[in-house]
Design a protein around this nucleic acid. Structure first.
Length: 347
DNA sequence: TTGTGTTTTACGACCTCC
DNA sequence: GGAGGTCGTAAAACACAA
């Protein structure tokens, strides 16, 4: 791997609902895997796993950017906001101005402060198909090397701190430098897919989703390598080629796919906003992330399970109901452990 | 390089709700 | 009956130690 040219989407780590002060500064100058940082997950006294380490280090406690709030690609729910007094994606949508900046400068990442451009783009030809035609972009410019072994959940990333999503980059950011792209670099494809693709998604029924999911299951890791940065899996590659693997609904070729950092980032953002995704939000995310609604539903289910598991580890098995203690805006939804029935508009 | 442990997708079973 | 919930689990993907 060409280590002076690789750009990557922000690392996706587990969402934390810790108080803001729990976000710890990260002092390593390395962008390599967590073992090469000055402080590894094992060194965090409260951490019991890699993912927990990330929770303490870098995940924002309030919703920051969310693709569905992008002004140039507004996806509006047609339902009233939940009655919860806490902000949710719906309630935040109308007021949130948090989004990434438009930038015509070369996009780079600070290897010191772990700022990664959300959607890095070559300075020469920003892809016009990006959502908002460039509304997403790096917040600042620095030199970058992305380690070949870096893993999404293990990269401490202050980039996720809310301040890095606001309109003014922190003054402490280091001076810009040019970024180099591999010749093979491919800009992220548009979130707004072709009409054909979108109509396909819209027409999906729940049963059809399974079919789509199976088709996506043939998407191999090669397709989403960091070099390619392609968050949109190819579709319809194996029509009718579903084979019995272990269960009837898994392909022989691929047991599961790996979501791109971009997809995971958006899903995590949505999860921070609400542990239970509404149907309109699910539909919107399905379109924007090129995932089936079933995949998004299952992702949220798995994410809630992960949250419960982490909270169990952290607080003990008997404290699974103490998750409302966190004081962030989302604590009402309680790590996914509050019944979705509390949301009148859930369905 | 290999073995091991962890995390991530995806599913089935079973449940509740409408 | 269909939706989505949790729970448990399989297997791929991944990190890391030896």
């Amino acid at each position: 791997m060409n280590n002076n040219t690789i750009l990557s989407y922000p690392s996706i780590v587990c969402a934390s609902h810790e108080p803001a002060e729990s976000i710890r500064p990260f002092d390593s100058s390395s962008y390599h895997n967590y073992s090469s940082h000055s402080m590894t997950y094992a060194e965090y006294p409260l951490s019991t796993s890699k993912s927990e380490t990330i929770e303490y280090t870098c995940w924002p406690t309030i919703p920051t950017h969310n693709i569905l709030n992008n002004s140039s690609h507004t996806v509006l729910d047609q339902v009233s906001p939940p009655l919860s007094s806490h902000p949710t994606h719906d309630t935040l949508g109308s007021v949130s101005s948090v989004h990434l900046l438009q930038n015509t400068l070369p996009t780079t990442i600070s290897s010191i402060q772990h700022h990664q451009p959300l959607y890095p783009q070559p300075s020469a030809s920003p892809p016009s198909t990006w959502i908002g035609s460039g509304d997403y972009q790096a917040l600042h410019s620095t030199a970058i090397t992305t380690p070949p072994s870096y893993r999404h959940y293990s990269t401490p990333c202050s980039y996720y701190h809310p301040q890095y999503f606001y309109d003014q980059p922190p003054s402490q950011w280091i001076s810009p430098a040019s970024v180099k792209f591999e010749p093979s670099y491919t800009p992220p494809p548009s979130y707004i897919e072709s009409s054909e693709s979108l109509s396909h998604c819209r027409e999906q029924t729940s049963k059809e989703e399974a079919c789509e999911s199976r088709q996506q299951s043939t998407w191999t890791k090669k397709d989403i390598s960091p070099t390619h940065l392609n968050p949109v899996p190819p579709r319809n590659l194996l029509n009718g080629n579903q084979l019995t693997f272990r269960s009837k609904t898994r392909t022989r070729d691929k047991y599961r796919i790996v979501y791109t950092d971009q997809q995971r980032y958006e899903l995590e953002n949505e999860f921070i906003i609400s542990k239970y995704i509404s149907i309109p939000r699910k539909s919107a995310l399905s379109l924007t992330l090129s995932l089936s609604e079933r995949q998004i539903k299952i992702w949220f289910q798995n994410r809630r399970a992960k949250e419960r598991k982490l909270n169990k580890k952290r607080h003990g098995p008997s404290s699974s109901n103490q998750l409302n203690n966190s004081n962030d805006a989302d604590s009402r939804s309680d790590g996914g452990l509050e019944s979705p029935n509390c949301y009148p508009n859930y369905t």
